[in-house]
Amino acid sequence: MTDPRPETVDEPVALRAPVPWSTVWRGQGPVVAVVAVGGAAGASARYGAALLWPAQPGAFPWTTFWVNVVGCFVIGVFMVLITGVWAAHRLVRPFFGTGVLGGFTTFSTYAVDIQRLLDEGRPLTALAYLAATLVTALAAVWAAVTLTRRVSARWSR
């Protein structure tokens, strides 16, 4: 690791062990509040997508797939802007990165949908969904970070 204190989605400088518990909780009130509001918005958007495009039993879960891929692309764009380009208020990052995007994307539904597909006797669909989500989500965040860096470098020239 080149950077011993990496940027996190939550805050510019990550906590690093060992830290007393008082430091862990100090000043977290406003952050918890904006993460809660963002999380409610993100979860609602995901629920809305599930109502618009309901999952068919035994089929590839396209709605959750796209929710996760879109969320990963957007976090890539957002993190490049917030760490380099845009001097935003300190609560913007926990609100949007941790709250909205964290609430919008989901790992638990991904895992349980794979379990359900296997249980329904759809091992190939389960395996395709497992691999496609992982590969596409990682490709989306990489593409978003790379593109946003390139565009912002051109702008600042």
């Binding site: 969320g71 976090i75 539904t109």
Partner: peptide, 16 residues
């Protein structure tokens, strides 16, 4: 569970 778990932070941290 949907808000507790996350794919976006997971993939961003993996990329980092």
């Amino acid at each position: 569970c949907g808000a507790l778990s996350t794919y976006s932070t997971f993939s961003y941290e993996t990329l980092r």
